[in-house]
Write a protein that binds this DNA or RNA. Structure first.
Lengths: 149, 149
DNA sequence: ACAATACAGGACACGGCTATCCAGTAATAT
DNA sequence: ATATTACTGGATAGCCGTGTCCTGTATTGT
């Protein structure tokens, strides 16, 4: 459902969410803690900076940190810069003419499915992702390669 | 949500579903009636043949026809050969360790969303897609280019 | 047999996502 | 000032999905 970059972004953001006191995390730390390809992590973070979710700082002691508290950053915002395709609305069947008054055969079913998806994405915050207990899979997720899926 | 090939497959199958008396439809007819790139339609149909949903016949008067009545072919089966990625199960976050006993933070929400999606895909048949009234968008869908989306 | 029809399938081009690598630039500490 | 640290951004390569084109092969009708 998510692109690889989207998953990388979630991992990177949860890593940053665990930093305390406005400290910056460098690309090396984010890559290893989040199991993101080291030479790709900067691309992901640059996109998150452009999206206004992350602040960057150059020089020694610099790196990246969340632009807002983890409680106020949603999953939706995190994957938005990467999942442009799957996130845009419109008819499931690609019908430009499909609307409430002119519904396609799947319109109502899809409206329901998409609504639930959006609701979950917009409700879940980075803080909630990190709140899982130490032994839960979400903890493993943070230190797992994406490849397996 | 669907890949382009998946949409092409739905279009092609609804065209075939409108043929009567076990007649074969050729690639030219399917391409123009379904607004599928003429030189790509054979690829889509070959995949549907391999999936056992469509029968092919060579020579004059040959072409393609549904292997089963349209009432017994689901949307799920139709897009399955093309949407391998989005259709596979597993954790949304790519967690191999995620399970009922070890749920990730999104496990229950995702189970709900995916369940609704699967239910719709497995319930809706080609016959239902074609059953829409003449003026409904689903009619336009059959003669519309995919590009716009 | 022969010619025409029409699917089967391989070769190839193109674009986007993923990923790698390297030069440039800003900030820190000495 | 200078060297070091570390983000910024461009160039590049591989893969996959999409799409085009061409040859081969099976079927039909004469």
């Amino acid at each position: 459902m998510f692109t690889r970059s989207g998953l990388h972004a979630i991992r990177a953001m949860t890593v940053l969410a665990r930093l305390e006191g406005g400290a910056y995390g460098g690309t090396h730390h984010i890559a290893s803690s989040g199991s993101i390809p080291p030479s790709y992590v900067s691309k992901v973070l640059q996109a998150l900076v452009r999206a206004g979710l992350v602040e960057s700082h150059k020089g020694p002691g610099g790196g990246f940190r969340l632009a807002r508290p983890a409680e106020r950053i949603t999953l939706w915002e995190t994957v938005a810069p990467f999942d442009g395709l799957s996130q845009r609305g419109g008819c499931v069947l690609g019908l430009s003419e499909c609307s409430e008054k002119h519904p396609c055969a799947l319109h109502d079913d899809w409206k329901d499915i998409r609504g639930k998806y959006l609701e979950t994405m917009r409700r879940t915050t980075l803080a909630e992702l990190n709140a899982s207990s130490t032994n839960s899979p979400i903890r493993d997720f943070l230190t797992m390669r994406v490849g397996a899926e």
